[in-house]
Design a protein around this nucleic acid. Sequence first.
RNA 1: GGAGAGAUGGCAGAGUGGUCGAAUGCGGUGGUCUUGAAAACCAUUGUACAGCAAUGUACCGGGGGUUCGAAUCCCUCUCUCUCCGCCA
Length: 421
Amino acid sequence: MLHINKIRDNRDSYIEQLKIKNFDAFTLIDAVIFKDDERKVTQQKADELLSKANQLAKQIGELYKTGKVAEANILKKESSAIKESSKTLQTKQGELEKKIQDILVQIPNIPHPTVTEGKSDADNVTLKEVGAIPTLMEGAKPHWELTSDYNLIDFELGNKITGAGFPVYVNKGAKLQRALISYFLDKNTDAGYIEYLPPHLVNEASGFGTGQLPDKEGQMYHAIEDDLYLIPTAEVPVTNFFRDVIVKEFPIKCTAYTPCFRREAGSYGKEVRGLNRLHQFDKVEIVQVQHPEKSYETLDVMVQHVASILDELELPYRILKLCGGDLSFTAALTFDFEVYSAGQERWLEVSSVSNFESYQANRLKLRYKDDNGKTQLCHTLNGSALALPRIYAALIENNQTAKGIIIPKALHPYTGFDIIK
RNA sequence: GGAGAGAUGGCAGAGUGGUCGAAUGCGGUGGUCUUGAAAACCAUUGUACAGCAAUGUACCGGGGGUUCGAAUCCCUCUCUCUCCGCCA
């Protein structure tokens, strides 16, 4: 959520910059400024009346103390009248505030100046490509066949007990999954991130804090009985740790492994086959809270960090800078990582590293005190380091050999085996 | 699930109708003292909105009500704690 004062100060440039996101903000921005003007006037009037009422109440108290009941009664009447009109104004003010809020949540974050125009993911800019595309042996298979051949993942069993998109990992397939989680967490904690293991269900306030609610309500599983939401990413619980917090020291660095639950309503077909898109998947997330002046520097460091993990896993990958059209509602700048999946001969997104600037912080009321002692909004950033299923898919596809699936060296200490036969 | 207690500033904790944005202690910040530090002493120390400012308004878990006036009384919701039950 953008801050109303910033919208006021930057009206024209915001409208211009949001065009990069293919978003026509003209109507909303003018509406919100108009409503805010109205709000200010209303508040001024209401405050004035309330001030008068407070004074009268004090006088009445004095009069009672000195036994001047008759005079007090006259003032009482006056006070009642004031109270009535102030109440009307306060109601109006409340309605205006709600309306302003309603509009504000509809305006996306302002893209960073370096974000280029574009309609869809086709227009993203490839910044760099690392590692050679592997040439596989004759008869190489996509992962959904490999997982079956080597008995690593039982999709059918998942179907039986839950439904499509809920795989069951088996034997070495399960061990590999666990190894990846541990490996990622260790890489992150080695880089100074504090490890957390948060709840996998959150309340409504948390869903709102990171922007899933009210806009993306349909994406989350909702446990209606208890009014709790299954998290679609660790970003939700972890970022909400800092809701209503005034931070003392930067940066705050967190990492967390969680399963992620996504309804993905309306997805089907080849694109979502096997591990490509799931309703439940595992992900290790990194989150940082940073001083506004340092957040872009931090974004680069986070990108480097994710790249270093992929280097170590010996997976060919590319880094994309998202164009305006593909940038998420809340992000100002995002870099995507895609690994090459040789069995499917396509690139798969495995990480998305973003700077949200103060967009989330404004909703969260996540602030710090500047040198003048004034409270200011922090910047928040997050990224996957990393999302498991597609890494898993690329790993087994790219490393399939006639002898079996070769496990990269970096994982040996975690798996305890170096090949799956 | 049953019974009871509670929710106050960064923390602890007082406050049952007016002079309470809120005692006191701890913590934080600034200063005095000191070669330096500690101790001691003094001062200061919540957030948001409106305003150039002075200042005003709102907030004592959330919402509503009574009253001229509510942290304080009433209703309601949420959460926490204790005991019992159940249980990994």
